[in-house]
Simulated scan of single mutants.
Amino acid sequence: MSDVDAYISALPEDQTQALTRLRAILKARLPDHLEVISYKMPGFRQPGPKGRMVAGYAAFARNCGYYPHSGTVIPQFPDLTAAFKTTPGAISFTPSHPLPEPLVLALVEARLAEIAQTGK
């Protein structure tokens, strides 16, 4: 069992389902990326020795979170994120109100573009 599998399987059932769904969306879009634990949360890192983190996610007592590992990605999508509590570096969601797939994909695309442009 991978570290990511262990992290997800240790959660309450509703969070397990929510993060399994989010993981599947990310894995389908980032099939060549590495699944890792970074900052004590699962996520996807670009391959290679200097691969950057593209997306991370985590579960907490009252919610789950999505982390693009950048403070400039989430603010690009005020309309898509309006239904969620956000900070420049995180989106909070619950299993009963998960992130829509188009939002997740938009966040991933923005992060990949940022990495391509800035290298960070």
Rank of each mutant, 00 (worst) to 15 (best):
Q46K: 06
T72R: 13
N63S: 14
L80Q: 14
Y39P: 07
M53Q: 14
L99T: 03
L107I: 15
M53V: 01
L26C: 15
I8S: 07
V104S: 05
S70Q: 09
E109I: 06
C64P: 04
A6Q: 14
I74K: 02
P12T: 14
A106V: 05
K50G: 08
A58E: 01
Q46T: 01
E13G: 05
G71L: 03
D5Q: 14
R45G: 08
G48Y: 00
E109N: 14
A28I: 06
P42T: 08
L80R: 13
P12M: 11
P102G: 12
T87D: 02
A113C: 07
R29V: 01
Q46C: 04
D79M: 10
L19Y: 10
T16F: 08
P102N: 11
G56I: 00
V104M: 02
I91F: 06
L105Y: 08
G48D: 10
A113Q: 14
V104H: 01
F84A: 03
L11Y: 03
V73S: 09
A110M: 10
A10R: 00
A59R: 04
F84Q: 02
F93W: 07
S96Y: 10
Q17M: 07
R21G: 08
A110T: 07
A58G: 15
A6E: 09
T118G: 01
Y39R: 00
E101F: 09
S2E: 06
S9H: 11
F60C: 04
I74V: 15
L105M: 10
R45Q: 15
A110S: 15
P31F: 07
H33L: 04
G65E: 00
A28S: 14
Q15T: 09
P88K: 13
S70R: 01
T87N: 05
L34F: 08
L105D: 11
K40F: 03
L11S: 03
A82K: 15
H69V: 01
K50R: 14
P42V: 08
P12W: 12
T87C: 01
P42R: 09
D14A: 14
A18K: 10
Q76R: 15
S2I: 03
P95G: 07
D32Q: 15
G43V: 06
R62A: 03
P88C: 05
A82G: 03
D79V: 14
R62H: 13
A28R: 11
A113I: 05
T87F: 02
I8Q: 12
Y66L: 13
G43R: 05
K40C: 00
L19F: 10
